[in-house]
């Protein structure tokens, strides 16, 4: 377990692009959005746009989730040798979340400001990211695991996981909107937590099954 975490950490430090690129993409796409549709700034749509862009960013990052380990053979070594492959999968999902979702917790409020959301809503944005993004990493991991064996799995990955992201999008954007309107955010907090917990219950098993399928494809 600790050696797995250490490896993930070493890799994260050496492949900084995996952390920086999604953030850059998010900033860039926000900029494009605002320039293309200036009216959306400070409007009711801002929270929804923010979450949609976070979703797309996560989707781009997901394609790489297992690809490097798959291509190098590290993945097959993990499944052959790890005493509990389940833990290895969970570690990978956690690190993927740290390098994307957790970053969103910090970047999200800043983007909210760019999109003209009131400063009072920024804690709510951070909270929504914190509760919602784990579901994106977990459910996305399932899609990534069955598509990692394809040379071009990106589009199929999107088709598989985007519908599953919808509840997170609804309640994530809903939480921010509720905070903006000054009403209680508790229903959304519960809903997002529940969605992430359900995802946590199914994703590691499903991912493991998906990775085994992908490893058998060659």
């Amino acid at each position: 377990m600790s050696s797995l975490l250490r490896r993930e950490w070493q890799v994260a430090l050496r492949a900084k692009g995996a952390i920086i690129n999604p953030v850059a993409f998010l900033l860039l796409s926000t900029t494009l959005f605002v320039i293309a549709a200036p009216d959306t700034v400070s409007s009711d749509a801002a929270a929804g746009i923010l979450w949609t862009l976070v979703l797309l960013t996560q989707l781009l990052a997901l394609d790489a989730m297992y690809r490097r380990d798959f291509d190098s053979g590290v993945l097959e070594q993990t499944l052959v040798s790890a005493q509990v492959p389940f833990v290895a999968v969970l570690t990978r999902i956690f690190m993927q979340w740290l390098s994307t979702g957790f970053i969103m917790v910090a970047v999200g409020p800043a983007l909210g400001i760019l999109l003209g959301l009131p400063a009072e809503a920024t804690p709510a944005i951070a909270l929504a990211m914190l509760l919602g993004t784990p579901a994106l990493s977990l459910l996305g991991s399932i899609g990534a695991s069955v598509t990692v064996g394809f040379s071009r799995g990106g589009v199929i990955l999107a088709l598989l996981v985007m519908p599953l992201f919808l509840p997170t999008l609804i309640f994530g954007a809903g939480l921010v909107a509720a905070a903006e309107a000054g009403s209680s955010v508790m229903p959304q907090v519960y809903a997002l937590s529940l969605i992430s917990l359900v995802a946590l219950a199914i994703a590691p098993f499903a991912t493991l099954a998906g990775l085994k399928i992908s490893l058998e494809m060659q």
């Binding site: 459910l139 399932i142 519908p163 599953l164 359900v198 499903a206 399928i213």
Partner: peptide, 8 residues
């Protein structure tokens, strides 16, 4: 697998 995850 995907049908199962979708159904849940």
């Amino acid at each position: 697998l995907i049908a199962m995850v979708g159904t849940i």
